[in-house]
Design a protein around this nucleic acid. Structure first.
Lengths: 232, 232
DNA sequence: TAGATTGTTAATCGATTAACAATC
DNA sequence: TAGATTGTTAATCGATTAACAATC
């Protein structure tokens, strides 16, 4: 049995965030979170930077450097307590903030997102779907009520919605986004295939560009083909 | 009227790819492609690195540096010919290779992807959907035939499929991926919410982690909130 | 205590920006 | 020609890796 209490005491004392966290580190946090979650599911209690580096295909040095931006999470001679580390990264990423989200656009994509456990796993509550299709309004999809987009503004205000998921066609994206921003929504997750720019600096936009990813895949395939033929 | 012929002659002479293209540049290419496409749609003929830098929110220096990795695309005193640049980047990214793709998993996500013009715009042909649901097999979704997953292997072999889009549940992902790899598929676009690792080095995997993006959004929201309260 | 493994400094590497000569 | 703007070099900045003393 591990002496977890003792270790935690040590952790708590030292855990202080450094001045500025490099953006390169922030970008890697979700991936750490994912792998630590898997290790936790597998029943693992602790891990060294060396072992984690093998699993994640990065250098052990980078892992230690990264995790140290937020204060001493590890313990010399022992490694990292997985549960503790997972919780700390969750906190850092705002997973435990319990944000409320609405999904605007109940088409295939909106429904695909609504159906997953992605939100719940990250502490985000999907409280409603919105659409302009009268056939859908009033129904439930995967247990989530569908409301008319006309009600979006008042609903977001009333229910303290922090996250708006945008799965409407490009043409409607700006209007919906501005409505949500005006109603106090703090983050927009934009799937509308365009770079959404809002004047309101208090609203964060995360643009998803699946097309870019598809192009990167094409590039890599093409690269592979060229390498094959480079036999001189 | 622009003297495009003369400029193109010059371009062709100089357009030689440098030794190694930094991965940071490759990552940015799809974004250049997107913006140049928009400019093209807007009927623009040419653009300077200075103007493009304003639109794209990057430095003009970076644009010139990036585009120069592939040879001289621009012309001093003139700028860049948008059409020419767009075509060149398309070629670099493999858009003009005309790859064939199948989508495996005809659920909400598979259908959402099938319905978009994303593939066509990037020169990728969606030739078939695959599912194990007998109610769907034999039907068409958005004009694309749905076939049974049992036929996946022989179909990919016969129809020279280069890209496999994976929108099946996590549990089925590895089996489907290995089937496709064995049938000669060169790239797998993986939406199965897990890091797919294949032994076959000739197959490229592009993992989509929407959850990571959602977490990044949560982080940014949390950041914004903290800034507000930092008024000392 | 001895072994293991972190935290942290210093060295290296790569990416970005600035500046300007080349040239259209 | 004069003005504009690239291509390219050099300077700066940030991120990664290596190494090892600190310490559990």
């Amino acid at each position: 049995m591990e002496s977890i209490d003792k270790i935690h005491g040590t952790f708590e004392r030292r855990a202080e965030q450094k001045d500025v966290v490099p953006s390169a580190v922030i970008k890697r946090l979700p991936r750490y979170h994912r792998y630590l979650g898997d290790l936790l599911d597998a029943g693992r209690l602790r891990i060294s930077s060396a072992e984690l580096s093998k699993i994640m295909n990065v250098t052990a040095s980078q892992i230690r450097q990264d995790l140290n931006c937020f204060g001493g999470f590890g313990q010399q001679g022992y490694g990292y307590n997985i549960k503790y580390l997972y919780t700390k990264i969750s906190d850092l990423l705002g997973v435990s903030a319990g944000y409320n989200a609405v999904i605007v656009g109940a088409g295939n994509l909106g429904r695909a997102l609504a159906s997953t456990r992605m939100f719940a796993r990250r502490g985000v509550n999907r409280v409603a779907l919105f659409d302009i299709d009268e056939n859908l309004v009033g129904k439930e999809i995967y247990g989530i009520p569908v409301m008319h987009t006309d009600e979006l503004y008042s609903f977001c205000q009333r229910e303290k919605i922090s996250i708006g998921v945008l799965t409407v066609p490009k043409t409607a994206a700006y209007e919906v986004a501005r409505t949500m921003a005006a109603a106090g929504v703090k983050g927009i997750w934009n799937f509308a295939n365009m770079e959404l720019k809002l004047d309101d600096a208090s609203v964060t936009v995360e643009n998803i560009h699946l097309g870019d990813s598809l192009m990167t895949l094409c590039y890599k395939i093409k690269e592979g083909e060229e390498e094959d033929s480079c036999e001189d």
